[in-house]
Structure formats: C-alpha cells, structure tokens
Design a protein around this nucleic acid. Sequence first.
DNA 1: AATCGTTCCTGATAGC
DNA 2: TGCTATCAGGAACGAT
Length: 303
Amino acid sequence: MLKNNMPELPEVQTTVNYLNSRAHILGARFVDVWSDWYKISKKGIEGKKILKIWRRAKNVIFDLSDEYSLLVHQKMTGHLLVGIWKMSRQGRDPAAAGETWKPAEEGPLNDPYNKFIHLVFFLDNGKMLALSDARKFAKVELWEKEELLKSSDFNNLGPEPLDKSFTFEKFKETLLGSPPSPRLRRVKQVLMDQNVIAGIGNIYSSEILWKAKIHPEKNVANLGQNELKLLYQAIKKVLELAVKLGGESFSDYRKPDGSKGNFDTERNVYRREGQKCHRCGAKIKRLKLGQRSAFFCPHCQKP
DNA sequence: AATCGTTCCTGATAGC
DNA sequence: TGCTATCAGGAACGAT
C-alpha cells in the first residue's frame, strides 16, 4: 500500500514558515517558469514581486505585486522546495540542467533534485521555487488577489482552528450550528470538511479523535459537553504540536529545504492498523468512511 | 439542498 | 522474476 501523507495544516504551515524566513525569497521577482505539466505562463508572472506568504486552510498563498496572488494547493503528494539555480547550456530545465540544481540548504535527502519536480519558478535573486508532485494533483493558479479572496471556494472555508478567535464557543457553534448543517454527520467526516473547520485532513482527524477518545463514526449531534471539550482541546493540541515538530514526513512531504518533519514519533493511530494502542495496548483498527480510511482504537474510542 | 459517486494521477504493493 | 490489477487520496464536479 502506498504510504500517503498529504500536506495538512501543520505541513502547510511549516512550509509557509520556512518560505517566510530561511528561504530568502521575500522581495524577489519572478524571471522565468519551467514546467512539464502546469499551464503557468511566464507572461503572467514575469516581473511580479513576492510580498507576503501565508496560509489559509491547506493553501499556500503568495501575495504578489500588482495586486496578484499565486495560489498553491499541494493536494496529495505535492510539496514546495527551494533551491538555487545557475544558467547552463541546457537552459533552465532542471531535469536537463542536472548538477546546477542544488538545495538552498543541505537537506538529509538532497530531495530538491528529484524526478517528481514538475514546475519551477526562477527568481531574480538566484533562487528556485519548485513543486515536486508525484501524482500531479496539486493546484497552482495565478489570481487577481481580490478575485481570489471573494471566490466561493475560498470564501466558504471554515475558521482556522489555531486562531485565537477559534474559542470553544466558536467551535461548538461551527460544529453544531444550523446553516450549513453537518448535524447528522459522522465526526471524522465533519472534522475533514474544509467548510466546517479549515486545514484538517485524514491523518490529523484520526489523531485528534484518538486523543479525544471519540469514535470516528460518532454523530456530532450526539457528542456530550465533555466530549466536545475534549475534542476542542485535542484539535488545538495535536495541530499545535505538529506545527512545532514541522509536520509529518513518513511519505512525500518535505520542508522546502528537503528535510523531514518530526511528527512521526507522535503518530498514534494513522497507518498503524493491527499495532498496539499506545494508551491501552488494544489493536488499532481501520474502517472505511466514504472513500477514506479511518484509524482508531476500538477500546479507547467506543461507538 | 444535501449527499453520493466519479474523476484526476502514478508509485507501491499484492497476487499470480 | 515479471507481469498486471488494485489501491491511496483532496476536492471539484456531475448525478441523484
């Protein structure tokens, strides 16, 4: 079975944190684009300057000059990498350029030069911003900033769980509130719904529910006050810890320098089917909810 | 209106 | 050993 690990909130935040600090790409301008897949034209982005890099849900947003924004959703296997480039006789194709493609900082896997890079932005300060994406699912779009902010996909996103404004009251209101009504739905699917709470995916929803000792199929309307409190605290704690550790890297995800995140030691249920629960020793089980697999401890998380 | 199924894609794995 | 069929998965979109 393929070991999937799509970037969720902690991984995307880790990427954004890196891009804003150690990558040294703020203030740089785009000079060229190479891709064997994405239809991003040099014409649209050439000369635009990177002003600010931020996250909303699982999206990375580069605010650019001229009131433009570059939207990147890494989906399943996508991850952004930063390197340095030099012109070569072969031009700027990193596959052809070979040794001119090097990571900006030393990463344990030397990952930035890999066969899954399908898009590279060349910046005027000698840096490359690349997208590695084995499955070619990632989304990269150039928007007028205002259009992006008022687009329905973007505007319907639920609150950011790590914001201070995401209080327990706000959480209950979001989870149980009337419109839209996720009232009759199973808690795992509700947690993963980007329009209810933004940024949580398959890995962290399983980890959060394990920590809160709640069964993934439990209907959110049937959660007691104590369970709601535990769930709220688990969301904050699990995501905060994962951001602190630089996310999860058991599969494709890497920080922009190619190095791995360190959340793996904290993984309690995801992809641990048949192994012992770290809390009670029972065997971790897996079930299908919709098209997704949910991992849980049948002893700690009773229906 | 809400929910379910399909689609995109390819590396890794299971089964023969 | 080598081939093929199956699976994983976020989210847009089409169908019911």
